[in-house]
Design a protein around this nucleic acid. Structure first.
Ligand code: MN
Ligand code: MN
Ligand code: ZN
Ligand code: ZN
Lengths: 138, 138
DNA sequence: ATTCTTATTGCACCCAGTTGCAATAATAGC
DNA sequence: GCTATTATTGCAACTGGGTGCAATAAGAAT
Protein backbone atom coordinates (compact mmCIF):
# COMPACT_ATOMS: atom_id res chain seq x y z
CA UNK A 1 0.00 0.00 0.00
CA UNK A 2 1.55 3.24 -1.17
CA UNK A 3 -0.93 5.52 0.58
CA UNK A 4 1.39 6.38 3.44
CA UNK A 5 4.06 7.31 0.92
CA UNK A 6 1.56 9.37 -1.07
CA UNK A 7 0.64 11.35 2.02
CA UNK A 8 4.23 11.82 3.14
CA UNK A 9 5.17 12.94 -0.36
CA UNK A 10 2.66 15.78 -0.07
CA UNK A 11 4.01 16.91 3.28
CA UNK A 12 1.03 15.48 5.17
CA UNK A 13 1.67 14.03 8.61
CA UNK A 14 1.23 10.36 9.44
CA UNK A 15 -0.85 10.71 12.56
CA UNK A 16 -2.30 7.90 14.63
CA UNK A 17 -5.90 8.41 13.46
CA UNK A 18 -4.78 8.42 9.84
CA UNK A 19 -2.79 5.22 10.23
CA UNK A 20 -5.64 3.41 11.97
CA UNK A 21 -8.32 4.47 9.51
CA UNK A 22 -6.26 3.78 6.42
CA UNK A 23 -5.12 0.38 7.70
CA UNK A 24 -8.70 -0.55 8.46
CA UNK A 25 -10.04 0.39 5.03
CA UNK A 26 -7.13 -1.33 3.34
CA UNK A 27 -7.32 -4.56 5.33
CA UNK A 28 -11.09 -4.84 5.10
CA UNK A 29 -10.79 -4.63 1.31
CA UNK A 30 -14.54 -4.13 1.03
CA UNK A 31 -17.34 -1.61 1.38
CA UNK A 32 -17.37 0.27 4.64
CA UNK A 33 -19.80 2.84 5.96
CA UNK A 34 -18.75 5.86 8.00
CA UNK A 35 -20.53 4.28 10.96
CA UNK A 36 -18.45 1.09 10.74
CA UNK A 37 -15.26 3.11 10.50
CA UNK A 38 -16.20 5.27 13.49
CA UNK A 39 -17.08 2.21 15.57
CA UNK A 40 -13.82 0.51 14.72
CA UNK A 41 -11.69 3.53 15.51
CA UNK A 42 -13.53 4.15 18.77
CA UNK A 43 -13.03 0.50 19.71
CA UNK A 44 -9.27 1.05 19.53
CA UNK A 45 -8.95 4.73 20.43
CA UNK A 46 -12.08 6.04 22.16
CA UNK A 47 -10.73 9.58 22.37
CA UNK A 48 -10.54 10.16 18.60
CA UNK A 49 -13.22 12.67 17.74
CA UNK A 50 -15.74 11.98 14.96
CA UNK A 51 -14.80 15.25 13.26
CA UNK A 52 -11.25 13.91 12.94
CA UNK A 53 -12.60 10.75 11.33
CA UNK A 54 -14.69 12.65 8.80
CA UNK A 55 -11.82 15.00 8.06
CA UNK A 56 -9.49 12.06 7.59
CA UNK A 57 -11.89 10.33 5.21
CA UNK A 58 -12.21 13.54 3.24
CA UNK A 59 -8.44 13.91 3.07
CA UNK A 60 -7.94 10.29 2.01
CA UNK A 61 -10.53 10.75 -0.70
CA UNK A 62 -8.97 13.99 -1.93
CA UNK A 63 -5.63 12.21 -2.21
CA UNK A 64 -7.23 9.23 -3.95
CA UNK A 65 -6.31 6.74 -1.26
CA UNK A 66 -9.96 5.83 -0.80
CA UNK A 67 -13.03 6.21 -2.99
CA UNK A 68 -16.34 7.45 -1.66
CA UNK A 69 -19.66 6.39 -3.19
CA UNK A 70 -22.76 8.20 -2.05
CA UNK A 71 -26.44 7.90 -2.74
CA UNK A 72 -29.52 9.25 -0.98
CA UNK A 73 -29.44 6.68 1.78
CA UNK A 74 -25.92 5.35 2.09
CA UNK A 75 -22.28 6.33 1.75
CA UNK A 76 -19.67 3.67 1.06
CA UNK A 77 -15.91 3.90 1.45
CA UNK A 78 -13.44 1.71 -0.46
CA UNK A 79 -9.71 1.37 -0.64
CA UNK A 80 -8.49 2.80 -3.97
CA UNK A 81 -6.75 -0.48 -4.80
CA UNK A 82 -10.14 -1.92 -5.62
CA UNK A 83 -10.49 0.46 -8.54
CA UNK A 84 -13.39 2.47 -9.93
CA UNK A 85 -16.78 0.81 -10.17
CA UNK A 86 -20.47 1.33 -9.46
CA UNK A 87 -22.78 -0.43 -6.99
CA UNK A 88 -26.24 -1.92 -6.98
CA UNK A 89 -27.76 -2.25 -3.52
CA UNK A 90 -30.83 -4.44 -3.08
CA UNK A 91 -33.48 -2.50 -1.19
CA UNK A 92 -34.97 -5.70 0.24
CA UNK A 93 -31.99 -7.79 1.40
CA UNK A 94 -29.23 -5.18 1.40
CA UNK A 95 -26.94 -7.20 -0.86
CA UNK A 96 -24.41 -5.11 -2.81
CA UNK A 97 -23.19 -6.00 -6.29
CA UNK A 98 -20.32 -4.21 -8.01
CA UNK A 99 -20.48 -3.40 -11.68
CA UNK A 100 -18.16 -2.08 -14.35
CA UNK A 101 -17.14 1.53 -14.61
CA UNK A 102 -18.33 2.25 -18.16
CA UNK A 103 -21.95 1.28 -17.54
CA UNK A 104 -23.18 4.84 -17.97
CA UNK A 105 -21.24 5.54 -21.16
CA UNK A 106 -24.41 5.52 -23.33
CA UNK A 107 -26.09 7.99 -20.98
CA UNK A 108 -23.05 10.25 -20.92
CA UNK A 109 -22.97 10.18 -24.71
CA UNK A 110 -26.65 11.00 -25.21
CA UNK A 111 -26.60 13.85 -22.68
CA UNK A 112 -23.57 15.30 -24.43
CA UNK A 113 -25.19 15.09 -27.84
CA UNK A 114 -28.67 16.33 -26.92
CA UNK A 115 -27.90 18.96 -24.30
CA UNK A 116 -24.17 19.63 -24.50
CA UNK A 117 -24.09 18.60 -20.85
CA UNK A 118 -21.00 16.92 -19.49
CA UNK A 119 -21.79 14.46 -16.69
CA UNK A 120 -19.23 12.18 -15.17
CA UNK A 121 -20.68 9.21 -13.36
CA UNK A 122 -18.26 8.13 -10.66
CA UNK A 123 -18.93 5.57 -7.92
CA UNK A 124 -22.68 5.57 -8.45
CA UNK A 125 -24.85 3.73 -5.93
CA UNK A 126 -28.13 2.48 -7.39
CA UNK A 127 -30.90 0.85 -5.42
CA UNK A 128 -33.32 -1.74 -6.73
CA UNK A 129 -34.14 -5.43 -6.42
CA UNK A 130 -31.61 -8.25 -6.76
CA UNK A 131 -32.54 -11.33 -8.75
CA UNK A 132 -33.50 -13.42 -5.70
CA UNK A 133 -35.65 -10.73 -4.11
CA UNK A 134 -37.27 -9.86 -7.43
CA UNK A 135 -38.38 -13.48 -7.88
CA UNK A 136 -39.53 -13.89 -4.27
CA UNK A 137 -41.59 -10.71 -4.36
CA UNK A 138 -43.22 -11.89 -7.59
CA UNK B 1 -55.45 20.33 -9.24
CA UNK B 2 -56.95 17.12 -7.90
CA UNK B 3 -54.53 16.76 -5.01
CA UNK B 4 -56.96 17.99 -2.38
CA UNK B 5 -59.52 15.47 -3.64
CA UNK B 6 -56.89 12.71 -3.63
CA UNK B 7 -56.08 13.41 0.01
CA UNK B 8 -59.73 13.69 1.05
CA UNK B 9 -60.49 10.44 -0.75
CA UNK B 10 -57.97 8.67 1.45
CA UNK B 11 -59.46 10.06 4.64
CA UNK B 12 -56.60 12.52 5.12
CA UNK B 13 -57.40 15.90 6.63
CA UNK B 14 -57.05 19.16 4.73
CA UNK B 15 -55.12 21.13 7.28
CA UNK B 16 -53.79 24.65 6.89
CA UNK B 17 -50.13 23.64 6.50
CA UNK B 18 -51.08 21.09 3.84
CA UNK B 19 -53.12 23.63 1.87
CA UNK B 20 -50.39 26.25 1.98
CA UNK B 21 -47.57 23.91 1.00
CA UNK B 22 -49.48 22.23 -1.79
CA UNK B 23 -50.71 25.53 -3.22
CA UNK B 24 -47.17 26.87 -3.21
CA UNK B 25 -45.68 23.88 -5.00
CA UNK B 26 -48.51 23.88 -7.51
CA UNK B 27 -48.42 27.60 -8.27
CA UNK B 28 -44.66 27.76 -8.52
CA UNK B 29 -44.74 25.01 -11.16
CA UNK B 30 -41.01 24.60 -10.89
CA UNK B 31 -38.20 23.12 -8.83
CA UNK B 32 -38.32 23.98 -5.15
CA UNK B 33 -35.93 23.11 -2.36
CA UNK B 34 -37.05 22.26 1.17
CA UNK B 35 -35.44 25.50 2.28
CA UNK B 36 -37.52 27.59 -0.14
CA UNK B 37 -40.68 25.83 0.99
CA UNK B 38 -39.87 26.34 4.66
CA UNK B 39 -39.12 30.03 4.11
CA UNK B 40 -42.36 30.56 2.22
CA UNK B 41 -44.49 28.82 4.82
CA UNK B 42 -42.81 30.67 7.66
CA UNK B 43 -43.41 33.94 5.83
CA UNK B 44 -47.15 33.27 5.96
CA UNK B 45 -47.46 31.21 9.14
CA UNK B 46 -44.42 31.55 11.37
CA UNK B 47 -45.74 29.08 13.91
CA UNK B 48 -45.73 26.08 11.57
CA UNK B 49 -42.96 23.77 12.72
CA UNK B 50 -40.31 22.48 10.30
CA UNK B 51 -41.14 18.90 11.28
CA UNK B 52 -44.68 19.50 10.04
CA UNK B 53 -43.32 20.75 6.75
CA UNK B 54 -41.07 17.73 6.26
CA UNK B 55 -43.89 15.38 7.25
CA UNK B 56 -46.23 17.11 4.84
CA UNK B 57 -43.75 16.84 1.98
CA UNK B 58 -43.30 13.16 2.75
CA UNK B 59 -47.04 12.63 2.75
CA UNK B 60 -47.55 14.53 -0.49
CA UNK B 61 -44.81 12.45 -2.07
CA UNK B 62 -46.28 9.18 -0.81
CA UNK B 63 -49.63 10.15 -2.32
CA UNK B 64 -47.98 11.20 -5.58
CA UNK B 65 -49.06 14.82 -5.37
CA UNK B 66 -45.44 15.93 -5.54
CA UNK B 67 -42.27 14.28 -6.80
CA UNK B 68 -39.02 14.40 -4.89
CA UNK B 69 -35.63 14.25 -6.62
CA UNK B 70 -32.60 13.80 -4.45
CA UNK B 71 -28.88 13.65 -5.02
CA UNK B 72 -25.90 13.98 -2.70
CA UNK B 73 -26.09 17.73 -2.43
CA UNK B 74 -29.61 18.82 -3.24
CA UNK B 75 -33.25 17.76 -2.95
CA UNK B 76 -35.84 19.14 -5.36
CA UNK B 77 -39.62 19.11 -5.05
CA UNK B 78 -42.00 19.28 -8.02
CA UNK B 79 -45.72 19.28 -8.48
CA UNK B 80 -46.78 15.93 -9.98
CA UNK B 81 -48.51 17.70 -12.88
CA UNK B 82 -45.06 18.33 -14.35
CA UNK B 83 -44.56 14.61 -14.87
CA UNK B 84 -41.60 12.31 -14.38
CA UNK B 85 -38.22 13.46 -15.60
CA UNK B 86 -34.57 13.66 -14.60
CA UNK B 87 -32.34 16.67 -13.93
CA UNK B 88 -28.88 17.83 -14.81
CA UNK B 89 -27.47 20.49 -12.48
CA UNK B 90 -24.40 22.43 -13.55
CA UNK B 91 -21.86 22.35 -10.74
CA UNK B 92 -20.35 25.69 -11.84
CA UNK B 93 -23.35 27.95 -12.55
CA UNK B 94 -26.16 26.01 -10.84
CA UNK B 95 -28.34 25.89 -13.94
CA UNK B 96 -30.83 22.99 -14.02
CA UNK B 97 -31.91 21.23 -17.21
CA UNK B 98 -34.73 18.70 -17.35
CA UNK B 99 -34.41 15.58 -19.46
CA UNK B 100 -36.61 12.74 -20.59
CA UNK B 101 -37.68 9.91 -18.34
CA UNK B 102 -36.35 6.99 -20.43
CA UNK B 103 -32.76 8.24 -20.49
CA UNK B 104 -31.55 5.35 -18.36
CA UNK B 105 -33.37 2.61 -20.27
CA UNK B 106 -30.12 1.21 -21.73
CA UNK B 107 -28.58 1.02 -18.27
CA UNK B 108 -31.67 -0.64 -16.83
CA UNK B 109 -31.62 -3.17 -19.63
CA UNK B 110 -27.94 -4.07 -19.31
CA UNK B 111 -28.12 -4.43 -15.51
CA UNK B 112 -31.12 -6.72 -15.91
CA UNK B 113 -29.37 -8.88 -18.48
CA UNK B 114 -25.95 -9.12 -16.83
CA UNK B 115 -26.88 -9.25 -13.15
CA UNK B 116 -30.62 -9.92 -12.98
CA UNK B 117 -30.79 -6.67 -11.04
CA UNK B 118 -33.90 -4.55 -11.32
CA UNK B 119 -33.11 -0.85 -10.94
CA UNK B 120 -35.69 1.84 -11.39
CA UNK B 121 -34.28 5.26 -12.07
CA UNK B 122 -36.77 7.84 -10.92
CA UNK B 123 -36.17 11.56 -10.63
CA UNK B 124 -32.42 11.29 -10.90
CA UNK B 125 -30.34 14.41 -10.24
CA UNK B 126 -26.99 14.39 -12.03
CA UNK B 127 -24.30 16.98 -11.61
CA UNK B 128 -21.80 18.01 -14.26
CA UNK B 129 -20.95 20.92 -16.53
CA UNK B 130 -23.42 22.70 -18.79
CA UNK B 131 -22.38 23.60 -22.33
CA UNK B 132 -21.52 27.22 -21.50
CA UNK B 133 -19.45 26.40 -18.41
CA UNK B 134 -17.72 23.51 -20.17
CA UNK B 135 -16.54 25.86 -22.95
CA UNK B 136 -15.52 28.64 -20.57
CA UNK B 137 -13.50 26.29 -18.40
CA UNK B 138 -11.69 25.02 -21.47
C1' DA C 1 17.01 14.72 23.50
C1' DT C 2 15.14 19.37 23.31
C1' DT C 3 13.10 22.95 20.92
C1' DC C 4 10.48 24.99 17.28
C1' DT C 5 7.07 25.29 13.74
C1' DT C 6 2.73 24.45 12.18
C1' DA C 7 -0.39 20.67 10.58
C1' DT C 8 -3.72 18.24 12.94
C1' DT C 9 -6.83 17.38 16.63
C1' DG C 10 -10.55 17.84 20.27
C1' DC C 11 -14.01 20.50 21.60
C1' DA C 12 -18.04 22.98 21.50
C1' DC C 13 -21.25 24.36 18.60
C1' DC C 14 -23.93 24.41 14.26
C1' DC C 15 -27.16 22.56 10.56
C1' DA C 16 -30.79 19.83 7.97
C1' DG C 17 -33.64 16.40 8.70
C1' DT C 18 -36.17 12.87 11.84
C1' DT C 19 -38.86 11.01 15.83
C1' DG C 20 -41.85 10.19 20.25
C1' DC C 21 -45.22 12.15 22.64
C1' DA C 22 -48.54 15.25 24.58
C1' DA C 23 -51.43 19.17 22.92
C1' DT C 24 -54.47 20.71 19.26
C1' DA C 25 -57.58 21.03 15.48
C1' DA C 26 -60.21 18.77 11.49
C1' DT C 27 -64.17 16.41 10.68
C1' DA C 28 -68.22 13.21 11.50
C1' DG C 29 -72.40 12.70 14.19
C1' DC C 30 -75.68 14.73 16.67
C1' DG D 1 -73.48 24.96 16.39
C1' DC D 2 -71.69 21.72 19.87
C1' DT D 3 -69.23 17.36 21.09
C1' DA D 4 -66.47 13.44 20.48
C1' DT D 5 -62.92 11.07 18.01
C1' DT D 6 -58.53 10.77 16.39
C1' DA D 7 -55.40 12.53 12.69
C1' DT D 8 -52.18 16.01 12.83
C1' DT D 9 -49.25 19.30 14.95
C1' DG D 10 -45.66 21.63 17.98
C1' DC D 11 -42.15 20.79 20.78
C1' DA D 12 -38.04 19.11 22.47
C1' DA D 13 -34.63 16.07 21.89
C1' DC D 14 -31.82 13.41 18.72
C1' DT D 15 -28.97 11.99 14.39
C1' DG D 16 -25.15 12.22 10.97
C1' DG D 17 -22.24 15.17 9.33
C1' DG D 18 -19.62 19.63 9.31
C1' DT D 19 -16.86 24.08 11.07
C1' DG D 20 -13.91 27.67 13.74
C1' DC D 21 -10.67 27.94 16.97
C1' DA D 22 -7.52 27.09 20.71
C1' DA D 23 -4.74 23.07 22.36
C1' DT D 24 -1.70 19.40 20.91
C1' DA D 25 1.57 16.53 18.66
C1' DA D 26 4.34 15.26 14.24
C1' DG D 27 8.38 15.96 12.42
C1' DA D 28 12.40 19.12 11.18
C1' DA D 29 16.33 21.36 12.97
C1' DT D 30 19.55 21.84 16.37
MN1 MN E 1 -17.52 -1.96 -4.45
MN1 MN F 1 -37.71 19.42 -13.30
ZN1 ZN G 1 -32.07 -8.74 -2.54
ZN1 ZN H 1 -23.13 25.92 -16.04
Amino acid sequence: MSCFATLKGKGLRLTQPRRVILDFIHDKGDHLTAEEIINYVHGKFPRVNKSTIYRTLELLEKNECVFKSESMDRTIYHHAEEGHHHHMVCSKCGKTIDCEEDLFAPVERSLGEKYGFNVDFKHVVMSGLCERCKNLTG
